[in-house]
Nucleic acid binder design. Structure first.
Lengths: 203, 203, 203, 203
DNA sequence: AATGAATGAGGTTTCATTCAT
DNA sequence: TATGAATGAAACCTCATTCAT
């Protein structure tokens, strides 16, 4: 459909230049569609950007959700989720850039939408952490900081995604491994020679 | 001096609107200085932004460096560094926003400067990790992923800084604690009831 | 076409104020076209001025070339060329002003273009002088100063064109006559009562 | 005196950039005097330019007048006047540029002043022509075109002056010679081998 | 349904000119 | 007296947005 064609172009252009410097002229050129069409289908520049964010957010959520196996152990769920996330970032780099970099920089409504998306990711992670801890009684302080831990983990994952752009030789499995080792085992264990490995290496 | 007055205003305005939407008119209004003065003291808009980034980068580095005690154990150094970092973010929120959000979004030279700053932080952390691991022989895979771990830790710290803005009731000590627990102990230990605490609680 | 409409206005405005003081606002007002149209059709102010110069140069060359009859005697060719020139100056005064006064004053690329135009005129005249002199052997010194004589003649013609603006009662035929008498006969002959007159008065 | 220092700088700057693009900042810099001083001594930019024109006009007139020997024959007077003129142009190129190119381009009052100067030159030449012709009865048509001839001669002289800038190997004597041959003898005589030479070669 | 053509509004930058010292 | 410091005004240029076809 025309709408998709336009959105694809918009994501590409917004990703490259950012919201404000991006020009509707360039979007129309890349989309191969005249400007009045853009306004007819998607509304103003602001509307267009909102549509971009919404579509890419949904894509990202779908991609991650599709990778998770709820029947597995918490650490394996996290592991699969991370790999799905990095596969998405790899395949739709422009989407990721728009969501993570450009939308937040604009602030206002856009940043709010992105923060909601992040919140969903954080809560998803928080559930995993909680279920992992349900075997034992988590220390009080940990209980309280549950969300904080999730925020940190999500942030770490995002930063590695950015860093990946400049270090493309790394695979998405390595990225996910590092994170698992870092947050599941911690430095403390690492220096003692422990390593986290997927219980199901084939996955 | 006039220069500082202008830079303060510029950081504030760039932080709020981002580089492109920010107008020199608004900078001049906030600074209480006419536009030609800005051009006389700091040059073009691009120059002005560069000056902002440079000054705030230096401030951030100084703040973190000032908080580190090289004679302490690695984990304590990290702990102090993180607290200094969060104190800086708290005290100079606009500086942090300009550096972390706006400069990266603009891309080009600006993003390069920020990435250099990040790289410095990452290397600093990498040194700590290495010194912590020197007691034992780090697993090969850890050796290779050293920088990745540091990237992840730095990213986690940054994300928590952003998240803090929307959750101001948390203290900088709590943020640092969470991170220490997360990366030093890891979930694995946490669920077993272990907790990381500063060896020198007074610090 | 729109382009012509804009160029006409630009020539008028540049002619009146000169390149630098002329404002794109005024050009757009005179052209009855909004400023963005000017930039869309003709580019920057510099581009616009270049287009003006090019068009008017071509017009001037065409006008003079159209008036010359190559089959006539050299003096008659000069006579006709001069009259064509003055007719052009009369009909397109703004064009002449832009070419002769404003473009030269700006210097740089503009002046270069004008000087090339002048050079063409000079060479044209030089050819006439040479063909007139071919019947006899021109004195050596004359040979060497051929271009200088042409420069002087062209300059004299230009100056009379300027002077004409303030003395509009004179006809273009009179101007051409004076020049012919001056350069073809010279004062020396004039004071002896000689006069140059077109051999074909009807022309 | 301060005034002279400023005027020298102004002539230099106006000559190089033209009236409008020239900046008071540059004048003050070249003059080694602060801007408020310029305003105190010479008034506004317009006033400053007027002063420049007036001073250089006077200089030019003086230079030419000083070279003329009223007791000589008319052609010799013209010859001496032309050489003085070219010597002035050579020695004070900036003055000449300001007067001939820049002032006329600005138009308005400035052009008027320059035109008055030209008129003086023209009348001076017209007197010579008239005195040369007084021996015989000039043809009626010549009488009427007297001023026109003078205008043409002056224009030719000016154009050669401009042309000289790009052909510096020519001497001022050659320039004056060409003009004398052109206007005093005319092409007609030149092709017959006649040449005008100063009756007093030492001069 | 689709677009070429057009513009109002606003942004960066410069410069003649003047206070306060 | 002489100047460093300051600004109001205006110029060039661009872009989101809309008619008329």
């Amino acid at each position: 459909m025309r709408e998709r064609q336009i959105l694809d172009a918009a994501v590409q252009v917004f990703s490259r230049y950012g919201y404000h410097p991006a020009s509707m002229d360039e979007v129309s050129e890349v989309a191969g569609v005249s400007k009045p069409m853009i306004y007819a289908y998607l509304g103003s520049k602001e509307d267009l950007f909102t549509h971009c964010i919404r579509r890419e957010s949904a894509r990202l959520l779908d991609a991650v959700a599709a990778g998770i196996r709820p029947e597995l152990a918490p650490d394996m769920q996290l592991w699969h989720g991370l790999r799905s996330f990095y596969r998405f970032v790899h395949e739709y780099r422009d989407s990721w850039t728009v969501l993570h970099r450009q939308a937040l920089a604009v602030g206002g409504t856009f940043a709010d939408e992105i923060n909601q998306l992040r919140q969903q990711a954080i809560e998803l992670v928080a559930v995993l952490v909680k279920s992992a801890g349900s075997r034992a009684e988590l220390a009080d302080q940990v209980q309280k900081s549950g969300e904080g831990l999730a925020v940190a983990l999500v942030g770490a994952a995002e930063s590695l995604a950015d860093w990946w752009i400049d270090h493309p030789s790394v695979t998405e499995g390595m990225l996910a491994s590092w994170l698992m080792n870092l947050v599941w085992l911690g430095f403390n264990d690492l220096v003692e020679g422990k390593l986290w490995t997927p219980s199901d290496p084939a996955a």
